[in-house]
Amino acid sequence: MLRAFSTAATGMTGQQTMVDVIANNLANVNTSGFKRSQLNFQDLLYVTLEEAGTEIASGINSPSGIEIGSGVRVASTVKVHSAGELQNTANPLDIAIAGEGFLQISLPNGDLRYTRDGSLQVNANRELVTATGYTLVPSITIPADSTVSIEKDGGVNITDATGNQSVVGTIQLARFANPSGLSSEGGNLLAETAASGTPTTGTAGDNGFGTIQSGFLEKSNVQMVTELVNLITAQRAYEINSKAITVGDEMLQTANSIVR
């Protein structure tokens, strides 16, 4: 059978994955702190029918060989950690990280997770938690009847009912050698993997860490137009690969018509 059938099929599968990735990016166009994924294709192994440099006559080497490729595969999806637009919300508990770094949070079982989604709230125990209710690490407790302000370096200041100011804690940031290697767990959470390396924690504004902007949320870094253009490209590429299968089928039909 024609090798071209399976080759074109790999192309179709690849483009289908591309559409899946684009759909997820588009669905998260309004998710704070969301980072778009980028798909990476690689060509598949080649069948070498004749290697370049083979002696075809005495003293004459063929300048190039015959290699037939067998299609494409999805090599990886990479999270693009470029900054999203900062949106002013005027809520002092909304924080955006301008630059590198993730907020550290702890799951109920004590595992650490990382996020860029800084829409913080105060829970029933008066601790600072993310929108999904996970506490920050180290945890910060806000006393009752006080107003909160968050500094650029992550310092959490409160003003109590009598007008006294005090610092109740500092929001720590974590960063990774390879942030693209973090695994996405949904719910805006990222988890450490062997590929990401171990986290380095530190204070906002120090040593390569971004600063904390209170009153802002980092919007998704998905650009609608780019995604839509990619979607069209993927759809057309899918179509063209299916065309190759149709044409291959017609060729075999011609071959079959020899014997009547």
């Binding site: 024609l2 090798r3 071209a4 059938f5 080759t7 074109a8 790999t10 192309g11 690849g14 483009q15 591309m18 798909l39 990476n40 294709f41 690689q42 060509d43 029918l49 015959i66 037939i68 490729g69 067998s70 299609g71 494409v72 490209t233 993927a234 590429a237 063209i240 690969n241 065309k243 190759a244 044409v247 291959g248 060729m251």
Partner: peptide, 17 residues
Amino acid sequence: TREFETIAHNLANVSTV
């Protein structure tokens, strides 16, 4: 046929960086 297979391979890699 081989030429056709090569075309199919090129088309499969239309999005390969």
